[in-house]
């Protein structure tokens, strides 16, 4: 379970990014976080990844309080949260399989389990045939699938996707959504920050809408926005 209790984030310059946010996400849920630019979506992901500390409130990931971690504890939190970003964030001089295997090397997995697990996830995202390619030889959609494979290779507790389809054309975006749905179906909690109205509307999942740092709507089987 992912729990946020009365989270506020006020930046040094006085900007209030989040105000008293309460949010609970059960294991295995699929949640869209929507809202206009500057609503606090990015701050929310930064707090979850412990890139920043909340000014007030408590964050609990998998029964562990994570809002006040020491610097050397942060990597272990991030291993529980698989991340995917709009800009893919792949190592461009490593092959696809090296990129995916890296996440396992970080946790010092055995060579044998890496050899077994990497092809599995590459197969799941449909990139088995491109294992030896470099990211620069792939399309945007393919690169995002590599990032997804890397995010789930260690079976994280949560998958946090920050605008994963932001750089992709609609058709490719749907390919990514299908994989996210597969991952979710296997029991991984998925948190997706997005602007893609058509995707949110079509998927009919839980939608949490932020506006000016507050949660203004939290609907199961919701849509992007009622008004627009």
């Amino acid at each position: 379970m992912l729990e946020l209790y009365a989270i506020s984030k006020i930046y040094g310059n006085g900007v209030v990014a989040l105000r008293d946010v309460d949010l609970k996400v059960e294991k295995g849920e699929f949640v869209f976080i929507v809202g206009p630019s500057g609503a606090g979506k990015t701050t929310l992901t930064r707090l979850l990844l412990a890139e920043e500390k909340p000014t007030k409130g408590q964050i609990i990931v998998n029964k562990k309080v994570v809002n006040n971690l020491r610097r050397n504890e942060i990597p272990y939190l991030r291993r529980q949260i698989g991340t995917v970003f709009q800009d893919f964030r792949l190592m461009n001089n490593w092959t696809v399989e090296e990129n995916v295997a890296f996440a396992m090397k970080v946790i010092e997995a055995s060579r044998r389990s890496i050899r077994k697990r990497v092809p599995e996830v590459l197969d799941m995202v449909g990139l088995s045939s491109k294992a030896k390619h470099l990211p620069t030889q792939l399309s945007g959609g393919e690169q995002q699938r590599v990032a997804l494979a890397r995010a789930i290779v260690n079976q994280p507790y949560v998958l946090l996707a920050d605008e994963p389809t932001g750089n992709l054309d609609p058709e490719t975006a749907w390919g990514i959504m299908n994989i996210l749905q597969d991952i979710n179906a296997q029991g991984t909690t998925v948190l997706m920050v997005t602007h893609a109205k058509n995707i949110v509307d079509a998927m009919r999942k839980r939608v949490v809408a932020l506006e000016a740092g507050r949660i203004v709507r939290d609907e199961y089987r919701g849509a992007y926005g009622n008004e627009d």
Binding site: L49, R71, N72, P75, Y76, L77, R78, R79, T83, F85, R89, L90, M91, F102, A103, V106, I107, R150
Partner: peptide
Amino acid sequence: REINIMKYVGATDWF
């Protein structure tokens, strides 16, 4: 950029 990516994947500073 690579260092940044490693941090997101959960690599420790010493790693």
